[in-house]
């Protein structure tokens, strides 16, 4: 018979080996392949690929989508989390579920819905038609699609935290004469800043990489409505693998930076709540002293 100590050490080892093998094969190997493939044609080919005007245009559009999406969805996330956690009203859980809804809509379907909504024959689209505006297959479409798929991220990070923190500090602020805005900026925001940054990082990562919704809305007009992920697709379908991987390596770098930032914010978020044990002090003396 084996001793129970032996079994527990063996099972520990088995778990660790499986984990290491799984992570290396499944997560690390794809990263290696991106790097090796992107430098497969030499450094010069790599630099050519990432400095190609089309790549730069795609980078610009991706950047634009992030820049427009981020403030809007951050504002929405904060306001929605504020409404859901600081006030009592009926239908709260329904609203909370609605905020999550974009998660459950496949991106391609999201893109299609937006075509129905904004396209020539859509409700909103026919209105835009009158002003001779065509949103579909243009930059605004890309931005709106990105907006749609990243709606829940900030709110999702903030709601549980704000729920847990309750409203006592806000009540204290109000009783001390602070206005609603003052209460938010001086009391609520400092308490949620790391969770907010965490949500921002998730939003950036997703808006940078969104493919499905953007793909059906862009019309693939090269150099005009192509984001970096779409640019990769075009290069790949042209069998220009080295260039496709070179551009991918850029996005991979951004993803890794995202992970680092995310780890940092997450660490900050969780270290903020550490409790120091404090000995009860001596008896207070006379207040007059």
């Amino acid at each position: 018979m084996f001793s129970s100590d032996y079994i527990s050490r063996l099972s520990r080892l088995i778990f660790q080996v499986i984990t290491l093998a799984f992570v290396s094969l499944f997560l690390i190997l794809p990263l290696c392949v991106i790097i090796s493939e992107s430098f497969g044609g030499g450094l010069k080919a790599y630099l050519n690929a990432i400095s190609h005007p089309d790549t730069l245009l795609a980078l610009g559009l991706t950047f634009l989508a992030v820049i427009v999406t981020l403030p809007l969805n951050v504002l929405f996330g904060i306001v929605a989390a504020w409404a859901l956690t600081k006030y009592e009203f009926r239908g709260k859980s329904l609203l909370s579920a609605l905020i999550d809804l974009p998660f459950a809509v496949p991106p391609v379907i999201a893109g299609f819905i937006l075509i129905l909504y904004l396209g020539k024959h859509g409700v909103f689209g026919s209105l835009l038609e009158k002003f001779d505006l065509n949103i579909i297959f243009s930059t605004p479409a890309i931005v709106i699609a990105t907006l749609f798929v990243t709606i829940p991220f900030v709110a999702r990070e903030l709601i549980p935290l704000m729920q847990e923190q309750g409203t006592e500090e806000e009540q204290a602020a109000v009783s001390l004469g602070a206005s609603t805005l003052q209460t938010f900026f001086y009391v609520t925001l400092p308490n949620i800043k790391w969770a907010l940054l965490y949500g921002i990082i998730l939003t950036v990562a997703r808006s940078m990489g969104e493919f499905g919704a953007v793909s059906v809305l862009s019309g693939h007009i090269r150099g005009k409505t192509v984001t970096l992920p779409l640019h990769i697709e075009i290069l790949y379908n042209e069998y220009n693998f080295t260039a496709a991987f070179a551009v991918s390596s850029l996005l991979m770098l951004l993803a890794l930076l995202t992970l680092i930032a995310k780890e940092f914010f997450f660490w900050k978020l969780n270290s903020g709540g550490s409790v120091h044990q404090v000995q009860e002090d001596t008896v207070p003396g006379d207040p007059a002293s």
Binding site: Q171, A172, V174, G177
Partner: peptide
């Protein structure tokens, strides 16, 4: 409004602003 009533309120669980020092807490109002 609560803030204009000239009322000092001490909460059961203190409700101190956790991210502010004692000084900043007291100076808040």
């Amino acid at each position: 409004r609560a803030g204009n009533r000239k009322v000092g309120f001490v909460f059961q669980h203190y409700a101190l602003f956790r991210h502010m020092t004692v000084f900043d807490n007291i100076a808040f109002g």
